[in-house]
């Protein structure tokens, strides 16, 4: 059998995941529904005058990302484990790092997709105008989702072996991604004029560095992480 190259393997696993997801829409629909419920709760809890709404928006937005994101990474390997497809995936004659990278990309894209719908709905509910800074907020969300995914995905693989995996995973992932959430909240706050500072680029650089460092660390260490 011909051995797949690294990027070919990434593409194959990624397209397989998209195909299964598009057929069942299981994770996407659950995440979206959960995201909208969160937005509703946050908006209902925080809505007040215009200034207070602007101040509440970054926290509510990144809170929603944190919760929908943990739902997403938790499902990554639960689906594979159902028919013991995980072992098959690990036994496949491809670089394991490629499998992890594909899963990271898949999770990041799914979170971005959900947030692309959740962020404007939250803005509407809190009556915050985000259109003026749409591009920058989108950049922050994309990098933040990637940051969540590069930490959450390898952790989800490892949690498969633990007892109480579904409880332990968020407990382990939340403190790890706190820097992402800090940068996201601060960056969004800067854009909306509620946080001190007038320049969002340090936060974007910070998120970029985070994604790069932990993404690479995960991909390089992955072979050491999983059981043979």
């Amino acid at each position: 059998m011909r051995r797949l190259g690294f990027w070919n393997a990434v593409y194959t696993v990624l397209s397989k995941d998209f195909r299964t997801e598009l057929r069942s829409k299981q994770t996407l629909v659950t995440m979206l529904f959960f995201g909208f419920v969160l937005v509703f709760v946050f908006a209902f809890g925080f809505v007040s005058d215009a200034t207070a709404n602007r101040r509440a928006y970054p926290g509510a937005l990144w809170g929603a990302l944190l919760f929908t994101g943990s739902l997403c990474v938790g499902r990554t390997f639960a689906r594979e484990a159902e028919a013991d497809a995980f072992s098959a995936l690990m036994l496949a004659p491809v670089d394991r790092s490629a499998v992890l990278l594909a899963k990271m990309l898949f999770n990041a894209l799914l979170i971005i997709l959900v947030m692309a719908l959740v962020a404007p709905v939250l803005a509407m509910m809190l009556r915050v105008d985000i259109v003026a800074h749409g591009g920058m907020i989108a950049t922050l969300i994309m990098l933040g989702s990637a940051g969540f995914s590069v930490i959450g995905t390898p952790m989800a693989v490892l949690a498969v072996n633990a007892r109480f995996a579904e409880v332990l995973l968020p407990m382990v992932v939340f403190p790890m991604v706190t820097p992402v959430i800090i940068a996201g909240v601060k960056g969004t706050g800067v854009l909306l004029g509620t946080t001190i500072g007038d320049d969002v680029s340090p936060w974007i650089q910070f998120l970029g560095a985070y994604v790069l460092c932990f993404g690479l660390a995960g991909v390089f260490l992955f072979d050491r992480m999983v059981t043979e």
């Binding site: 952790m155 072996n161 109480f164 332990l168 407990m171 382990v172 403190p175 992480m225 059981t227």
Partner: peptide
């Protein structure tokens, strides 16, 4: 989180590796 993982996550090889990755990251 590391400590809770080690205490309540079981003793298997997988958990030990999970904890190691958590400490490294």
């Amino acid at each position: 989180a590391y400590w809770v993982l080690r205490t309540y996550g079981g003793r298997g090889e997988g958990v030990r590796r999970f904890a190691a990755v958590l400490a490294i990251f």
